[in-house]
């Protein structure tokens, strides 16, 4: 009887259907559209397959310019975020100072505001600072977006490093700097790696801040995609760019897995 009930795991099936319908299906549809030249109702599959739209998109110099701008922005923002946030995360994890809890919560509270409204008010401030329409302005607004993730995740990672491990290293003769470099950092690395990767990917896909502060002079990939879809509603353009945008994050994910090992990487993401 128990075996029979187990075989008919209805909640599991419902969940699987839900995931297929809301996650897998849209992704499959995007992929299909990316390689479609014609798709007429009521055909279930495209009526004509092809790479025509890929060539159309990829031969445009503004696509490549936007791609490299996005890559460069993501790399700069991730690096700056690491330089600023990782020491702060260590301080939050290991040091006691007045207002520690308040500052930790303030990062969360900043993200609790409606994002668009927050970015508009920052954009107004940037206007007075002549940062609107500049590369630096986009870097700063995207950097602000990464703070929550780059402080909270590494703080939790540093907190999770056993204090006894650090003390044991000190005990055998390691200076505080060596303890951090040889023990604390490697122990926290999977989570830090996950945070860096997510920061890179989020920055790459970030649209609102880049649009309000950077447009039209700073053209990132998501902004270019928006303008292409707005100018002429060809589904294939959107699909091709979506698949193209998916590639950098996939490469980053695969590299991270290779560098850190799948187990520790999954651990960093909380698995």
């Amino acid at each position: 009887m128990i075996g029979f009930i187990k075989r008919l795991d209805w909640p599991g099936y419902v969940l699987a259907l839900f995931l297929i319908f809301f996650i897998l299906l849209p992704i499959v549809t995007v992929f299909l559209w990316a390689f479609t030249e014609q798709w007429f109702y009521p055909s279930v599959l495209p009526t004509k397959w092809g790479l025509r739209y890929w060539f159309k998109v990829l031969e445009r110099p503004d696509v490549w310019a936007a791609f490299f701008t996005s890559l460069q922005l993501s790399a700069i923002v991730t690096a700056l975020s690491a330089v600023i946030c990782l020491p702060a995360a260590y301080a939050f994890a290991r040091m006691e100072f007045p207002g520690k809890q308040f500052f930790m919560m303030s990062f969360l509270m900043g993200n609790a505001f409606p994002r668009f409204a927050l970015i508009i008010s920052i954009a107004v401030l940037f206007l007075s600072l002549n940062l609107v329409g500049t590369y630096l302005g986009v870097v700063i607004i995207q950097l602000l977006n990464t703070i929550l993730l780059m402080i909270w995740l590494p703080t939790a990672a540093f907190q999770a490093v056993s204090k006894n491990m650090e003390e044991a290293a000190m005990d055998v003769g390691a200076s505080p700097l060596r303890v951090f470099w040889h023990i604390t950092l490697p122990q926290a690395l999977p989570a830090i790696g996950a945070a860096l990767l997510m920061t890179f990917v989020w920055t790459f896909y970030e649209t609102e801040g880049a649009w309000l502060v950077g447009a039209p002079r700073v053209q990132t990939m998501p902004l270019l995609m928006m303008s292409m879809i707005n100018n002429q509603l060809v589904v294939q353009y959107g699909a091709v760019l979506s698949v193209a945008l998916w590639v950098p994050s996939l490469i980053a994910l695969l590299m991270a897995r290779r560098v850190m090992g799948s187990d520790s990487f999954a651990k960093g993401l909380g698995a």
Partner: peptide, 26 residues
């Protein structure tokens, strides 16, 4: 001095050799 901790406090990212050798390398 050298201390043995209740929790062992071995460095899980290092193998046994590296755990024991760490202090000597320093």
């Amino acid at each position: 001095t050298a201390m043995v901790f209740q929790s062992h406090a071995l460095w899980t990212h290092m193998n046994v050799f590296d755990n024991v050798a760490f202090g000597l390398k320093l």
